[in-house]
């Protein structure tokens, strides 16, 4: 808690920089607006205030984003297409479904890799290589291909969220299931424990910290996947679609509001996973 003051200070500093940047970036636009309206008698203070309250600013002020968020989250009915809650729920649904599938597949594959030697030797290098490839580039194509099979709606986006979270989870879990050192494995050997016993009593519990770390990365990746997928297929809504619509119509305030909603969603998701992980790790005796 002794970090509270420094964090508050940093956040306030970011807000201050944001205001200065917004006023500076928007001032030219606002001067043009005055010129168009034939006004020349404005004061500097007026210019600054107006720069921070433009309808389509280059960079909206924090208060504009905040009020847009309040409006589109609290005021507008969640059933309306102008509500961020509406779009956020779509994104959340895709993310959660995709994350669940990606995690299940990722953990399953990790278990198989650790248990089957030839698969480990042949597949693990590809998995590691996959981390260096911008697999997100596949997103638009997956949407189109699934479209060919009449798979539309939530499914294609959940699929992209799933495969973006799949790779980091697999890699993390392979590492985790390999965490026991030779000494601990030898101990199980002296008990002539079966492979499944070694797995359940040693590998699985030892992998817990890796499990939660990969879950955090996987959740964040799933959300990025869902958002990028929504950009490629924007007619069904979602925060990504909101971003794209905002950029089409120059609605900067709307873009920023969608961006912050996505950030909040990500922070909450990762936060929940992190919290569960902390509690579980604490109970299991992994000291932090």
């Amino acid at each position: 808690m002794k970090s509270l003051l420094p964090i508050t200070t940093v956040v306030l500093a970011v807000l201050a920089i944001w205001y200065v940047a917004a006023a500076t970036l928007n001032a030219d636009l606002q001067r043009d607006a005055y010129a168009n309206a034939g006004r020349t008698d404005y004061s500097t203070a007026e210019l600054i205030v107006d720069s921070l309250n433009m309808e389509r600013p280059k960079l909206p002020g924090p208060h504009q984003v905040a009020s847009e968020m309040v409006k589109s989250i609290v005021v507008i009915s969640p059933t309306s297409k102008r509500s961020l809650v509406y779009h956020g729920l779509i994104t959340l649904e895709e993310t959660l479904i995709g994350f669940a599938i990606g995690a299940a597949l990722g953990i399953g594959l990790a278990v198989v890799i650790v248990s089957v030697r030839w698969l480990d030797r042949s597949l693990t290098p590809w998995l590691i290589a996959s981390q260096t490839v911008p697999i997100i580039a596949l997103a638009p194509m997956i949407v189109v291909i699934l479209n060919q099979f009449d798979i539309t709606g939530v499914a294609p986006k959940a699929a992209i969220a799933a495969y973006l979270s799949f790779f980091p989870i697999t890699v993390g879990m392979v590492k985790g299931l390999r965490a026991p050192d030779p000494l601990q494995l030898d101990l199980m050997r002296t008990y002539s424990a079966s492979q499944s016993q070694t797995f359940l009593k040693l590998r699985a519990p030892m992998s817990a910290p890796y499990f939660f770390a990969s879950m955090k990365i996987g959740a964040a990746a799933a959300l990025v996947g869902a958002i990028v997928a929504e950009v490629t297929k924007s007619e069904d809504g979602g925060l990504g679609a909101r971003l794209l619509a905002g950029s089409y119509y120059g609605q900067t305030v709307q873009i920023w509001a969608a961006l912050f909603a996505a950030a909040a969603l990500s922070a909450v998701l990762v936060g929940i996973v992190g919290l569960v992980g902390r509690i579980a790790e604490h109970r299991m005796g992994f000291v932090r």
Binding site: T8, V14, A220, V224, T252, I255, S266, A267
Partner: peptide
């Protein structure tokens, strides 16, 4: 102490979203 939690938080955010801006 102030920037590190902030940086950690931002690292986990879907930053690609700033692309349209």
């Amino acid at each position: 102490r102030g920037l590190l939690p902030f940086g950690n938080l931002v690292s986990a955010l879907p930053i690609v979203g700033i692309a349209p801006i």
